[in-house]
């Protein structure tokens, strides 16, 4: 009798404790201590962007002797990985930090992510419907002096015992429009090892 009762209590306890869906929790993105994943997650982008920006600002390449700011244009960021990546996950952070550093501003009209509405709005100068004192005149846009472009590259290395190594290379370079010279470039490697059943995409 006692054994039966004990079994029922044990069974009920297991049902209550173990059979429910795992609870949903918000990620503490400031102090996330969860284990690594084989794919790229937000921590990898944070880490890569942080190292890139620190390298660029620490290099002093964005410092102008007269204290003014460079005008930059963002070029293409190639995604050479098996993952579907919005490359803005990297570039938005880099752009934000360069802008906030006070050493550079980005052109919104040049580059793959240019602001089409901005150009459309400038065309309003041709319209009789608008007060001409509120429309933009011709030849007032400022051309970029520097371009920034890069690549996210992936290498998968099979290892023994059903394991694999996945290397993600974040590469950026900064070039001067006038001379075509590259002033700064950086590569950040994020490497992961794990089961080859964890497909990185």
């Amino acid at each position: 009798m006692k054994t039966k009762l004990f079994s029922i209590i044990l069974f009920a306890g297991l049902l209550i404790a173990g059979c429910g869906e795992p609870a949903t929790t918000n990620i503490d993105t400031t102090n996330d201590s969860a284990g690594a994943v084989m794919s790229l997650d937000y921590r990898d982008f944070d880490q890569a962007a942080s190292k890139m920006v620190q390298s660029l600002l620490g290099s002093g390449r964005l410092g102008k002797s007269d204290g003014s700011r460079y005008v930059l244009a963002t070029g293409r960021i190639l995604n050479n990985t098996t993952q579907r990546i919005d490359t803005d996950q990297l570039m938005l952070k880099v752009r934000r930090e360069i802008t906030n550093s006070g050493q550079g501003v980005f052109s919104a009209v040049v580059g793959p992510g240019s602001d089409k509405t901005l150009l459309e709005t400038r065309e309003l100068r041709e319209s009789d419907e608008f007060d001409t004192s509120t429309t933009a005149e011709k030849r007032t846009l400022i051309a970029p002096e520097l371009t920034i472009q890069g690549k996210i590259h992936q290498v998968i290395v099979p290892l023994a015992r059903n394991r694999q190594q996945v290397e993600y290379y974040f590469q950026l370079e900064l070039s001067e429009v006038k001379t075509g010279l590259t002033y700064w470039q950086e590569e950040v490697l994020v490497g992961k090892r794990g089961s080859d059943k964890s497909v990185p995409w």
């Binding site: 996330d32 921590r43 944070d46 880490q47 962007a49 942080s50 920006v53 934000r96």
Partner: peptide, 9 residues
Amino acid sequence: DSKTSVWLP
């Protein structure tokens, strides 16, 4: 406030 202030290994 900066995106460079993240945990780095």
